[in-house]
Design a binder for these strands. Structure first.
Lengths: 223, 223
DNA sequence: CCCCCCCACATGACGATGTTATGCATAACA
DNA sequence: TGTTATGCATAACATCGTCATGTGGGGGGG
């Protein structure tokens, strides 16, 4: 019987700590969450319908962060390098927030589209952002694409598949370098979409340079 | 106290019904399994260490079936079409056994490599089989690849990512055609690996024709 | 100003999960 | 026949998400 907390931000605090628990412990249970908040598990059911809807809120926030982080990449005169930079940021986010990524693109994705249409829109907007980068490559004359959306789905499949494999520890298990195979995906995809091999190689090294710098900046800010 | 079943095949029956429950109900619990077997949950712990090791056995069997099914594809004079046929079979298996696929390439993959080394080898052998198809494309002069393994990882990432997205219902949700984007992956990857666009298009239609025929054969045998 | 209603929350319980301690009945062996 | 080993059932424990119930205090109507 704490004196009626009357905290209008309780919802936000629940989502915050849920996201934090997901990031630090890899799982969120109602009881663990309540213990962290100093409340009972009922707060999950009064403020949300249950754990599923709470998870959807965490996912939505995840997609917003994901989208803004991906869009931080500058737009330069090398559209292919910009596209690659975008996908290196994609990988960086997933490696930094592995559990969040697993929830966002895992079984929760199916439940996501059943909820608030704004949720699906948050997820779609990050995909649309990818399509813009592809369009820029076409406009720059580097690629020749009949259907941008299909090309986007193909590219997304590649990076998503590689990301999930890397998160499950596959490359560690077989002693292979994930950066190399990720570069291979970007390279073959770019050439396959119409760019010449030399231009793609140059764009890759440009994008890789940016990615390494961003990795270092992230490591520095984490310290 | 049934009179000491003394069934030397109990282990096999447990794995069988576990696989069947996974396929038909999407989940395997110790109690559900015991109810199906007419035993108690203890059989899981006497014959296996627990649910984890049981799952590993189901995974191992899954990889064996997966591998033999993938290797059924004929080797013709069109190596790229053979490679594509291999990957269409990949997709067919995943769509027919969605839960098994999710377990095989999901979080269980990490636990898989901790178990019997033979388990990891079963999984690796299917990957090696993919590498053989890639090598054939190189030998046929269609592709130019410096590191076959890296190319294999890139190709696998693409089809695995597309498969997981399709299994979560993504393409249904946005009303897109997964066959089209899967074809896009195969096409762009083949061109990106050195083949010319026309040859890749011809190989794609060849492989697609085979895949449709195999789909129909499977649908007929299921009837 | 007071009272009553309402609702956010705590408590405790229910059914499920994987796991395990205990006991028994039977197979295997001396 | 006596002894040991063990495969299995029973029942319990801890955990999970969820919910029915009770309660206490804040907010609106008299």
């Amino acid at each position: 019987m704490p004196p009626r907390s009357d905290d209008p931000h309780l919802r936000e605090r629940i989502i915050n700590t849920a996201a934090q628990l997901l990031a630090t412990e890899g799982a969120v249970s109602a009881r663990r969450l309540a213990r962290e908040l100093g409340t009972s598990t009922m707060v999950v059911y009064t403020h949300f319908g249950g754990m599923d809807e709470l998870t959807r809120h965490v996912m939505r926030r995840g997609f917003v962060h994901f989208g803004t982080e991906l869009d931080r990449g500058a737009v330069t005169d090398d559209a292919v390098a910009d596209w690659m930079t975008y996908l290196w940021s994609y990988r960086r986010f997933a490696l930094r927030e592995p559990h969040l990524y697993a929830v966002m693109f895992g079984p929760g994705l199916a439940a996501f589209r059943l909820g608030d249409p704004a949720d699906l829109e948050a997820a779609r907007s990050t995909f649309v952002s990818l399509l813009r980068r592809i369009h820029a490559c076409v406009n720059a004359g580097r690629w020749e694409v009949d259907d941008v959306t299909t090309a986007g789905e193909a590219a997304w499949s590649g990076v998503h598949g590689h990301t999930t494999l890397e998160l499950t520890g596959f490359f560690d298990a077989v002693g292979r370098d994930p950066v190399r195979s990720y570069s291979e995906i970007l390279t073959r995809m770019s050439i396959g979409l119409g760019d010449d091999a030399l231009g793609t190689a140059r764009s890759l090294s440009t994008a890789r340079r940016r990615a390494v710098r961003a990795d270092r900046a992230e490591a520095a800010s984490a310290r």
